[in-house]
Computed example of a mutant assay.
Amino acid sequence: MATREELNAARLFVEKANRLLKSTFLKEAAVNMGWTLSGKKDEAVRIEHRGPRWENVEAFVLTFRFFIQDNESISIRNMAKVFSSDLATPGERRRFYEIRESLNKYLDGSSMFKEGARTASRREVMDVFIYGGMSHAKPKKKEKFDAWMRHVLLGPMTTTEFTTILSTVLSAIENIQRICVTLLYRYA
């Protein structure tokens, strides 16, 4: 039998996912995201980030953190409790774990940025932005974030990579949300 805690987690997951899916960040990311490289002879090369405005990214991340911080009942890791319970059918359970595994594989994959001989993972890029530049200032992550942002090419490129990562994680959140809606419908 499903517990109140599991049902509440599924409801909150749907609620917070809806907030992200209606965000200005998402609307702006859908229009024109990327970076532009330009320059003229005898001038420095310029690179500019195109995409969501920074304040919209910050607003998005405020809610987004519910899905990645394990102190939240609806973090993707903690949602395994919901999908491991009798609340979920075997098919829903399997689909959740497929989504989670695919997301982890994506996040642990290589970003486009090398640091010396090492390539930063997408998870690292996400963590540096969120925990070094936006919502916290963990010293090592803050130092790395500041170094990236000072760099004429790396700043805009990592910002674009970060917004792409957020959009990809949101796709996984949306897929999990659909499963949660089905679960909740059964128990309504």
Rank of each mutant, 00 (worst) to 15 (best):
A147S: 07
L184S: 06
R19L: 13
E55R: 10
E143S: 13
E72W: 03
H151L: 04
V128S: 14
E6K: 01
L166V: 01
L170W: 04
I68C: 08
S121W: 02
W148L: 07
V31F: 10
R150K: 14
K114R: 07
R123F: 11
P156Q: 10
R100V: 05
P90G: 08
K114W: 05
G155H: 14
A30I: 01
I176P: 01
K144F: 06
I176E: 09
N56A: 09
S111Y: 08
T160S: 08
M112W: 07
R94G: 04
S110D: 11
K144M: 13
A137C: 09
L7P: 02
R122E: 04
R95Y: 01
G155F: 14
T158A: 13
E6Y: 07
R77K: 06
L166E: 08
N32T: 05
P52A: 09
T163R: 00
L170E: 05
F96E: 06
M79G: 06
G109L: 01
R19T: 11
K141T: 09
I173F: 01
F83V: 03
A188S: 00
E101A: 14
D146K: 11
T160P: 02
F25V: 05
S102L: 14
I173A: 09
S23R: 00
Y97L: 02
I99P: 02
T24F: 00
P52R: 01
C180S: 07
I176F: 03
L87N: 06
D70M: 10
V82L: 14
V128D: 02
H151E: 11
A29C: 04
K105Y: 12
W35E: 10
E101R: 12
V128K: 06
K144T: 14
D86R: 14
E174T: 09
S111C: 05
R4F: 06
G132D: 13
L87Y: 07
L183W: 10
E15D: 12
A172W: 01
